[in-house]
């Protein structure tokens, strides 16, 4: 039943995304209304599936009372939820449903990947994860990642809009998208608000590692890439604050940061294979 709710949520996110494309290209306010409502229902289903999953998870005694994000499925699920939720809150507050076309694809991608590629089986937590830290550290980090996905979408919209206006022949799309300065400011605000969250997440990881394994920072792939992501956003902030740079260039950096987020989340799992590839070649 939990999977049923999750698949429904994934489907609703997809419908919402399709509607958002339609809304971007046409002018029908009705689409915006529906995409919002459907997204809300999708979020609700997703939360329900999460609660059900947690209950099943707690049936294994070692899993009490931790959250079920120890598998790829669980993590992807939470990520999709966070992206949709951050969009719902941030863009909802500013009435920027139009950006749905840029942000919701990530929620669909994450939940779709979970449905198609990840194994939804509930498993027991390995001893290293049996700690209260699992209830906070991954969530905090993934919320930051979700916010950066939002920032990516906003940045993409900014690039498009800037190109539109600069070209001196703006198309209909130009009038649908928000103003350049507004997008730039939103991009900045999202990153500014969630950068401390990213920092907290990384620090929490270090403290947990210290308590479990005796070292705060071991430079393993996952930690290192989280740090690289952090550095990229530090570059973004310095460019804006001290370098007086705005617009296009900073968007490129923020997009690079998001690419780093993706690598941190997904890519590092393939690194050991990469290691193998590199060392057995020749």
């Amino acid at each position: 039943m939990e999977i049923g709710f999750f698949k429904t949520a994934a489907a609703l996110y997809t419908v919402s995304m399709v509607l958002s494309f339609g809304y971007l290209l046409s002018k029908k306010e009705r689409l915006s209304f529906w995409l919002w409502k459907i997204l809300s229902v999708g979020l609700f289903c997703h939360v329900v599936s999460f609660i059900l999953r947690t209950r099943t998870f707690w049936q294994i005694p070692e899993n009490r009372y931790f959250l079920p994000i120890n598998t790829f499925f669980g993590a992807l699920s939470y990520l999709a939820l966070a992206v949709a939720l951050v969009f719902w809150v941030v863009e909802g507050r500013h009435r920027l449903n139009i950006l749905g076309a840029f942000v919701l694809p990530w929620a669909c991608l994450a939940s779709g990947a979970a449905v198609v590629f990840a194994d939804p089986a509930i498993s027991g937590l390995v001893p290293a994860l049996q700690s209260y830290w699992i209830n906070i550290h991954p969530m905090v980090l993934m919320t930051a990642y979700a916010a950066f996905a939002n920032a990516f979408g906003v940045g993409l919209a900014l690039l498009i809009q800037e190109h539109q206006v600069k070209s001196r022949k703006p198309s209909l799309l130009c009038y649908r998208l928000p103003a350049i300065e507004d997008l730039d400011q939103l991009n900045y605000r999202i990153i500014a608000v969630f950068f401390p969250v990213l920092t907290i997440g990384i620090i929490m990881g270090g403290v947990w590692a210290y308590n479990a394994w005796g070292r705060f920072w071991g430079w393993d792939a996952k930690e290192t890439w989280a740090l690289i992501t952090w550095f990229v956003y530090v570059i973004y902030l310095h460019m804006r604050f001290f370098g007086g740079v705005r617009g296009r260039k900073t968007v490129y950096v923020s997009m690079l940061g998001f690419a780093s987020v993706i690598f941190t989340f997904v890519g590092v799992n393939y690194l050991s294979e990469l290691h193998g590839y590199l060392s057995s070649k020749g």
């Binding site: 290192t224 890439w225 740090l227 690289i228 550095f231 590092v268 690194l271 990469l274 290691h275 590199l278």
Partner: peptide
């Protein structure tokens, strides 16, 4: 840092 994750 990235380089260190690609090379053994």
């Amino acid at each position: 840092s990235a380089l260190g994750t690609f090379l053994p």
